[in-house]
Nucleic acid binder design. Structure first.
Lengths: 222, 222
DNA sequence: ACTCCCTTGTTGCAATTGCAACAGACTTTT
DNA sequence: AAAAGTCTGTTGCAATTGCAACAAGGGAGT
């Protein structure tokens, strides 16, 4: 994907956009699957925008327990600016799940008054605002899931969110393996497995590989 | 607090700011302690900025279980735009903890091209960007806490965050009662109580009312 | 001082979740 | 085709957490 096609530049002409590149000084880098895209060792106001590929933001605590903080797909945005990394006791990394292409730029370059007087500068800032809005919503969804009190409820609310994001006509699926899902829900894998088989046996869920389907029982409420 | 003194207008002259008010058409409302500031029944792009007072964003699920999603203080920002409210099964509300004064405005009014050509319009957008950055960080902190696997770790990481936010020389404190804290950590109150007494007896924590102190045992690591 | 109401602190017991171990399926590498 | 590695699915047992109930403390209002 060309950097100019990124949502950040939506509404900005191709020509203008090229000109802005000299303002923002973006750095575009490629990563192979499995490599580390970023750690948050040193403070920086760099933001990254996924042009292509998939990645996950993970944390390992001092006991080596992995938590998947966030799944990042195309057009996702990440950066220390949006992510708590205060705890020195555990390390946060962004790891490429597939081959990735990522555009890095400094937030200050976007935010500061532009000497070149780019016409569309403020349009970019507004787009960034929208991206941050979306980021905040996806973080809220994450909280929604994690605030469920039982594994079953965590799973259901998580699947419901993925289902809602699935385009019409497609079968909903999770962007993880079951093992990774347990790191995402912050629960024990085998306990999650147990809940999954229970929900399947109750007829509330079908699942094969990463594809799933939720079966509603709205009559229960009546 | 005067609306013009809000962080949203930082770097904007008093005069300019007054002029912008006609652009943004802010609505300033007061709420008494205990009243509901907002529910998210109908979609809107309204954002609220706390000028004074304290509030909490809460959710009640279908079983009546309360979750405190977020504690809002002065200068906090909230709005459906930043908050997942997709789940129809549970209701999200913002409840005033103390008397509050809140400025509401429509995000579209801020974001749209301004016919009045206010000089400082883009400055306001940048400020909004910064507020959203902070919002994202505070949501990430929330995830950091909720992703801990045990009640003890949830409590410690939560207290550590509150401690880090305490100005030098002040005794750190939580913005809740213990009961509310359990709704914030999404755990059972008596189980939380149990963990608290355990940590106290181990000498890792002192706590009285809402004030607390964490005692570090860095030697443990060696 | 008294009542009402809410919060704190505690406990026994039940339910859920975590842990460890293992077998089988599936992928990738050699 | 064999081997190595990772993921899925299961289970028994241990640890943690939730639940319910109760006693005690504190604040607001009468």
């Amino acid at each position: 994907m060309l950097p100019e096609e990124n949502v950040l530049f939506r509404g900005v002409s191709r020509e203008e956009c090229r000109r802005m590149m000299s303002c923002f000084k973006p750095e575009i880098r490629k990563f192979t699957a499995g490599s580390i895209i970023a750690d948050f060792c040193e403070p920086s106001d760099k933001i990254g925008i996924m042009l292509s590929g998939n990645a996950v933001m993970v944390r390992y605590d001092i006991n080596g327990v992995r938590t998947i903080i966030e799944a990042l797909g195309e057009q996702s945005i990440f950066g220390e600016y949006f992510t708590f990394s205060g705890a020195q006791r555990n390390s946060i990394e962004i790891v490429a799940e597939s081959d990735c292409e990522i555009m890095f730029m400094h937030q200050s370059e976007i935010t500061k008054r532009c000497e070149n007087a780019c016409q569309c500068h403020s349009r970019v800032v507004e787009n960034l605002l929208m991206l941050m809005s979306e980021k905040a919503i996806s973080l809220s969804e994450r909280i929604e899931v994690l605030s469920q009190r039982s594994i079953g409820d965590k799973l259901l609310s998580c699947l419901k969110i993925f289902e809602d994001k699935t385009p019409n006509g497609q079968v909903p699926q999770i962007p993880f393996s079951t093992t990774a899902l347990s790191d995402y829900l912050c629960v024990n894998r085998s306990a999650l497995q147990r809940e999954m088989t229970k929900l399947k046996s109750e007829g509330l869920l079908t699942m094969s590989k990463r594809k799933f389907r939720l079966i509603r029982r709205d009559e229960d409420e009546i």
